[in-house]
């Protein structure tokens, strides 16, 4: 049994007897996953779906994510909703760097995950994962609000499973792990560097 973990059968037995037992880790993650505050910014048409998700019909408030923050200092989650142009990419990395740990990224829509229909163009970034680490990718053009809610729930699962101690503890708790990523510079022909090797490796083709 891991440190800070309780045996499942013992816990359910205790619960039957009216004793509710939890661990610090569970309580902490339970609080975190039900109060994810997204950063309020949109880049293109996906932002309209994100707004629809926050509005009353789909209501992201059911999952504790309704508090869209206009400042990165108060946000836990960055929803990259839309086409990331190369001119916009350094600003997004800068916003990400300004967010406090723990921080998460949802890459929403075909453009944000790969460049989408503009992939072979000269001015569109081929996916935001070239510069910042992405936790959940949502395909779609644009994804429906249900898809964003699904990604949100996936992120909640991820937060729930993060460890606070031990060798497998979450990345953001390791003091040597920097959570700032270099901001690309505007070059003469392209962004410099074109991708951060720490977060992105070009796909390798293997034929069997």
């Amino acid at each position: 049994m891991n440190e800070g973990q309780i045996d499942e059968s013992l816990r359910s037995e205790l619960q039957r007897q009216g004793v509710w037992v939890t661990s610090m880790q569970e309580l902490y993650n339970w609080g975190r996953k039900n109060s994810i505050w997204p950063l309020q910014f949109g880049l293109a048409c996906c932002a309209i779906e994100m707004i629809a998700t926050a509005a009353s019909r789909y209501d992201i408030a059911r999952f504790g994510g309704e508090v869209f923050r206009p400042s990165p200092r108060q946000a836990d989650l960055m929803i990259v909703a839309g086409t990331v142009t190369k001119k916009m990419a350094p600003q997004i990395v800068r916003l990400y760097n300004q967010m406090p740990d723990p921080k998460y990224v949802i890459s929403m829509g075909a453009c944000a995950i790969s460049g989408g229909p503009f992939k072979q163009g000269y001015n569109v970034l081929k996916g935001i994962d070239r510069y910042i680490p992405v936790d959940v990718y949502i395909p779609g053009c644009p994804p429906r609000p249900e898809a964003l809610l699904h990604a949100f729930m996936e992120l909640q699962h991820k937060i729930d499973s993060q460890k606070l101690s031990g060798s497998e503890k979450a990345e953001f708790l390791k003091p040597e792990q920097s959570s700032e990523f270099p901001v690309p510079a505007f070059g003469e022909h392209d962004l410099n560097p074109p991708a951060n090797p720490r977060t992105y490796q070009p796909p390798k083709l293997e034929r069997v």
Binding site: S114, G115, K119, K126, H189, D190, P194, P202, P203
Partner: peptide, 8 residues
């Protein structure tokens, strides 16, 4: 354009 082709 810059040669930043990615597999398709």
């Amino acid at each position: 354009p810059p040669d930043d082709f990615e597999w398709e």
